[in-house]
């Protein structure tokens, strides 16, 4: 084992892992973090804490991670390269680890264009692949990126994202290979609605044996309504929502659409369980965290194993 991470232990024991996420509040309201995280107790192995998601200012991921850590849950520190240079990243990583946070996710982050601070400067000192390499080096070599020795190196279990649905499709396996080369331990994918395309991507992943080098967790998002399905199809870059999914949501009366969304989500998990190389699920229930326990239960993923 590289770390003390619960997620690493679950995966190493061969269980299908389950993670979900908690978006910190847009204000100094620690109880909001606690309420959201509490909903996930007992039904996930790790809770991703987003880092100024969609380029909107929120409570820092690190601060919210500490709150969640103190509740006896397992936060996953998300970190984007948009807002911090490599000094700030490394200091936050050792800071997080000092509080017991042992799992993180390295991302480039949504462009400020999409948030409510489009006037902000982008940092992007390093990219997500370079961040993975930096964190692995901090853990395994005990060195800062500048080359100096770290006194008490952070033993982080390192995650990254992958979007099998973005273009050019032919680069999507190759880019995963670059993340593997950089030393990533686990991957959480973009929300999967187009299961056929995801399976095609996984074929490419298996052809290169990448599924044996990195634990791939399939990204799942329940849709609340046909409106949300259409929005994700048309407005969210890199999101692939097939017409038949939108039609299925549109085919049921409004008051039953949220239940239909949960059904689709559970069926997707069931189907993906059969895909070789899928090692778990990352459930992103956007502002709908209270549905996660039900999804996990209906998908047959409860109780969570104790490791």
């Amino acid at each position: 084992m590289k770390t003390e991470s619960t997620l690493e232990k679950i995966l190493a024991a061969g269980h299908l892992a389950v993670t979900s996420e908690c978006g910190p509040p847009r204000g100094a309201l620690p109880n909001k973090v606690k309420e959201k995280a509490e909903l996930l107790r007992g039904c996930v192995d790790g809770i991703n804490v987003t880092d100024n998601q969609t380029a909107m200012v929120r409570m820092s991921s690190l601060a919210a991670c500490i709150i969640i850590q103190n509740m006896g849950l397992n936060p996953i520190l998300q970190m984007v390269s948009r807002d911090r240079n490599r000094l700030a990243m490394q200091s936050d990583i050792i800071g997080a680890y000092s509080h017991g946070v042992d799992t993180m996710l390295c991302l480039s982050g949504d462009h400020p264009r999409f948030g409510d601070h489009p006037m902000a400067a982008n940092v992007h000192d390093i990219d997500s692949i370079q961040m993975v390499d930096m964190v692995r080096n901090m853990r395994d070599e005990g060195k800062f990126q500048g080359g100096e020795k770290i006194d008490g190196s952070p033993k982080m279990f390192i995650g990254a994202a992958a979007n099998p649905f973005a273009d050019p499709f032919e680069l999507r396996v190759a880019r995963l290979a670059k993340k593997v080369k950089a030393g990533v331990d686990f991957i959480q994918t973009q929300c999967i609605f187009n299961v056929d395309k995801f399976e095609k991507w996984m074929e490419g992943v298996r052809e290169r044996g990448l599924h044996e080098k990195v634990a791939i967790m399939a990204g799942i998002t329940p849709m609340k309504s046909v409106g949300m399905a259409r929005y994700m199809k048309n407005k969210v870059p890199g999101m692939d929502v097939p017409d038949e999914v939108v039609q299925r949501m549109a085919g049921v009366p409004k008051e039953k659409q949220s239940e239909e969304g949960i059904k689709i989500c559970v069926e997707t998990i069931q189907r993906l369980k059969e895909v070789e190389g899928v090692r778990g699920f990352h459930i992103m229930a956007i502002e709908w965290e209270q549905k996660v326990p039900e999804i996990v239960e209906r998908a047959g993923l409860l109780p969570r194993p104790v490791v």
Partner: peptide
């Protein structure tokens, strides 16, 4: 090391 997930 791109492209990110936003290339369409």
């Amino acid at each position: 090391n791109g492209p990110c997930g936003g290339s369409t």
